[in-house]
Design a protein around this nucleic acid. Structure first.
Lengths: 342, 342
DNA sequence: TTGTACGCGTTATCAT
DNA sequence: ATGATAACGCGTACAA
C-alpha cells in the first residue's frame, strides 16, 4: 500500500512562487499589503499545488480554532437536528467548522462532552444543557472565560447568553389555544423537569394560563424522553375517565406519542381529546390528524446562536438574551371541547 | 473584561512535578515505561492543574487528528441523524471527535464540505454522497490516499469501502410485500436518481420483483427531496384514475408525504392505496396509519462505519463492503389490494 | 528510566 | 514590500 503523499505546505508554495513563507501567509490572510505581481505568482503557486492551508498549524499558532463546538441532548429529535442545520449554514458562511457531541440528557455526559470539545480549543460553544441556571459545566466555562451561547435553554441569571423562545409565553399560548376551544379540563405531558428547564418553564406558562382562565390546575404527567416505561405511564394516565379533554405536550415528539396512545385506547383526536404540541417539527404537519403546535424557528435559532457567538468571540460582547418569536401552527389535533358531561 | 487565563501546558505540569515535558508526555500516552513514583507525581500535577492535553499540538505533531469528518446530505432526515448518533457513540468510546457537514444533496457542496473537513487533517471520513461510483470528490480522496468509508452508498466498484443495506434486495422485498397482499398495479415514488444511487438501486430491486411476479413495470415518479413542487407532482400522479394500488416510496419521509397527499385527495390508506416506505424511522410507528417500512439499522450502521474506518486508519485494511440486514417493519399502511375493478 | 532538542505548519515580530 | 525567525504545544529520536 502506498502512503498518502504529504499535502503541500506554505514552504512548498513559497518555493514554487520564489518568495518566503511570510509572503505567502500575507497573501492568504491579507494581513499586510503585497505587490500585485508577487500576489499573482503566489496565487498561481497555490492553485498549481492544490494547496489548502493547514488549520492545525494555524490553530496552534493563534491558540484558537475557527471551530464551534455544539452540544445537544440528542440528534434524534428534529428540533435539535434542525438547529444544527442552522448552525452549519451560518458557520459555513464564515469559514467555521462544526464539532458535535450529544449528552443524551445526562449531566455527566454533558461535562465529559464539553471537555472533549474544549480539548480542540474550539473558538466557542453552543449548548443545550439540562439546567442552565445551576450547571457545573457552565460554571467551569465561566471560570475559564470561555465563550458560549445557550440554545433552547432560558436561564434566569442575566450573565448567560442564550437564544430561545419565551418558553413561559409559549406554554401559556398553548394552554390558551385549548381554552379558546372551550376546553376546561386541561392536562400536560411534560418532559422531566430535572432534565429540561424548558419543560419547567412551559409548565409554568401553562399553569398561569389556567389560573388566568379561572380553571383548576391541570393534571401534569412528567415523563422521561427515551423511556418506553413512559408509554405505560402515558397510557395509564389517559385511560382514566377523568382524563383531560385538552392536552398540552411540552414537545411535538411527546405529542405524537400521546396521540398514538390515545388512538390505541380507542379515543379519537380531537373529538375526545384535543392535543397541542410544542416545537413545530415538519413531520407533525404530515400526520393525521395534523399536529397543532407552538412552533419554534429552529433553523433560525441555530443561525442566531452562531452569530451571537461570533460577536462574543471577537470583542467581549455582553451576554445577550435573544428571544425569538414562536407562533401557533394550526392543526387538526386541536378541536372544540366535547359537550360537558359533568 | 478579563481575558481567559491560558490553559496549563505540558511545561506547567512538568515544572510542577519536577520532571521534563518528555516524561509527562510519556505518562500521558504510555509510550514508554516510567517509574511508578514519578508517574504518580506527574498524575498529581495533572490533576492539580486541571491539565487537559491540547489536541492541536498533538495533531500538528503526528500529522493527523483523532477526529472523524462526517458528510451527509442533511440532518433533517432522521435516518441520517440516527446514524450520526451511532458514529458519535463509537467515536466517543475511542476518544475520537466528530466534525460534521451537510451537502444538501448538492454535488458542489459535497466537494467544498470535504475540503473543509480535510483542512482539519481529520483522521478519516464517513460520507454519503450523491453518486458513489462516479464522484470527483471520492476520486480526489483516493488520489490523496485518504481514508474514508461510505455510509448508505452502495458503489459497485470494489475499491470503495462502504456500510449499507442491500438496496436492491430491500427494494425487491418492499415490492414483494405489496405483491403478497395481492397488489398488481404497483408504483414507486423515488428520490431523484441523480442525487441518490440508493434510490436507483432500490428501484432496480422493485422493478425486478415486478418482473419476477409477471407484472407490468410500475409507474415511477422521480421526485426532489426538499422541493415543494414535488408535492404537486405527487398529487398529480396520485390523482389519476390509473394510479397504483400499491405504492413503494424510496424513503419514509417520501412515504409520509405520499400518505398525506393521498389523504388530501380523499383516498384511504390502505383501503384504496397501500404504502410501504424504506428507512424505518421512529415517527413512522406513531402515525395513523402506522407506516410499513423496510427498516435500516441506522444507529448500528453509523457504529460500524466508524469501526471500519478505524481499522483502515490503523493498518491499510482492504476496503470492506459491509451489508447489514434490513427487515420488514409491519404497519397498517400496508393492506390487501382492493377487489379488481378492471 | 529520564532529559534535551528538534520539527510539525502557521502567524506575527522585527529587520531590511 | 518582503525575508528571516521565533514561537504555539506536543511527540519522539537520541543521549545520558
Amino acid at each position: 500500500m502506498d502512503r498518502p503523499p504529504p499535502r503541500p505546505t506554505l514552504h512548498d508554495v513559497a518555493a514554487r512562487a520564489g518568495v518566503s513563507i511570510a509572503t505567502v501567509s500575507r497573501v492568504l490572510n491579507g494581513s499586510s499589503p503585497t505587490r500585485p505581481e508577487t500576489e499573482a505568482r503566489v496565487r498561481a503557486a497555490i492553485r498549481g499545488l492544490g494547496f489548502r492551508p493547514n488549520r492545525t498549524g494555524r490553530e496552534l499558532r493563534v491558540g484558537q480554532s475557527h471551530t464551534v463546538g455544539v452540544l445537544l441532548p440528542s440528534l434524534s429529535n428534529p428540533i435539535f437536528a434542525d438547529s444544527v442545520s442552522g448552525i452549519q449554514d451560518a458557520a459555513r458562511a464564515e469559514g467555521w467548522s462544526v464539532l458535535i457531541a450529544s449528552s443524551r440528557y445526562d449531566a455527566g455526559r454533558e461535562h465529559e462532552a464539553v471537555e472533549g470539545l474544549l480539548s480542540h480549543r474550539v473558538g466557542g460553544l453552543i449548548l443545550t444543557v439540562a439546567e442552565a441556571d445551576a450547571s457545573p459545566t457552565l460554571d467551569a466555562l465561566d471560570a475559564e472565560g470561555l465563550r458560549y451561547v445557550l440554545l433552547y435553554n432560558q436561564p434566569t441569571r442575566p450573565d448567560r447568553a442564550f437564544v430561545s423562545i419565551d418558553n413561559v409565553a409559549a406554554g401559556r399560548d398553548a394552554a390558551r389555544a385549548l381554552v379558546a376551544q372551550g376546553h376546561r379540563r386541561l392536562g400536560m405531558v411534560a418532559g422531566r423537569f430535572d432534565a429540561s428547564d424548558r419543560s419547567r418553564l412551559r409548565h409554568a406558562g401553562f399553569a398561569a394560563a389556567l389560573a388566568e382562565a379561572g380553571l383548576p390546575p391541570g393534571q401534569v404527567l412528567e415523563i422521561g424522553f427515551d423511556d418506553s416505561a413512559a408509554t405505560d405511564a402515558l397510557r395509564a394516565a389517559l385511560a382514566r375517565p377523568d382524563r383531560p379533554t385538552g392536552l398540552f405536550c411540552s414537545t411535538d415528539l411527546l405529542a405524537l406519542r400521546s396521540i398514538a396512545v390515545l388512538r390505541d385506547l380507542g379515543l379519537r383526536v380531537p373529538c375526545d381529546v384535543s392535543v397541542i404540541g410544542l416545537d413545530g417539527i415538519a413531520v407533525g404537519a404530515l400526520t393525521a390528524p395534523s399536529l397543532a403546535s407552538i412552533a419554534q424557528p429552529a433553523h433560525e435559532m441555530g443561525r442566531r446562536a452562531f452569530h451571537h457567538l461570533l460577536r462574543c468571540v471577537g470583542a467581549d460582547a455582553p451576554a445577550e438574551h435573544i428571544l425569538l418569536p414562536h407562533r401557533l401552527r394550526p392543526g387538526s389535533s386541536l378541536g372544540a371541547a366535547p359537550p360537558s358531561q359533568e
